[in-house]
Amino acid sequence: MRSLRASEEMMTNRFPKQVDRSTLIQLNGVTKKFGSFEALKPIDLSIREGEFVSVVGPSGCGKSTLLKLVAGLAPISDGELLLAGKKISGPQTDVGIVFQSSVLLAWRNIIDNILLQAEMRNMNKAEARSRAEALIAMAGLQGFEKKYPWQLSGGMQQRASICRALLHDPQVLLMDEPFGALDAMTREKMNVELQRIWLESRKTVLLITHSIPEAVYLSDRVVVMSERPGSIAAIYDIDLPRPRDLSVMASTQFASYTKTIRQHFYAQGSLDDH
């Protein structure tokens, strides 16, 4: 699969429109309008099964809108949006979402917050609980199951919300600036954790971020979006060996990726963050 990928598209930003076997999410000319306001220009993008794709772009470029469309939380205005070959209309069962804030319910402890996913989806209670416990162990939250969200640090809250997003074992994990509210050091730690969780679970991840190093560190591919109305400016394959540890950030290869991506924003004169 790796070799197939390498020969298929190297540093190109357009993909063949036919759905190949391993493509999980497919966007063909997807647009989004709010009334007369054009939020997204036609977007073509395909994400393969098990791939980690990040979207970076200036504030207000529509990257969060893109995620909402894939999540089925907002209807597309035009084009075609497919998940596993089926049109996305409305919320999906095979998708888990992590938001910028952890949106944990203040009146539920950590395990009950994670189990909200099971209650909403009418999952088997005993199975859901044992799965929640396994996820808690994976996220390093043992001993905090009975704590309430406000008793946890921001990083731990976000880990709990990742567990909640993974409870129903979705194929796709969508993350909307999940570490944007964390301090820089916690954020790096969470990046390492997320890579580990991803390597263990092999989910297909679509991560929205405005941190270029975060995108490069975590991703197989980085999608660069331009100013509004949002469109894809470029897509970069990140060819760094896995698992990556934080020292990779000091490598010349890493620096050249971040430099190249950063130039998009300098060219637009709109670098707003990191």
Partner: peptide, 18 residues
């Protein structure tokens, strides 16, 4: 109610009653 909270519930396929 935070709009993210509403989106979260919707993404879980929550019914209005739940």
């Amino acid at each position: 109610l935070e709009s993210d909270m509403i989106d979260l519930a919707k993404s879980m396929g929550s019914t209005k009653l739940k």
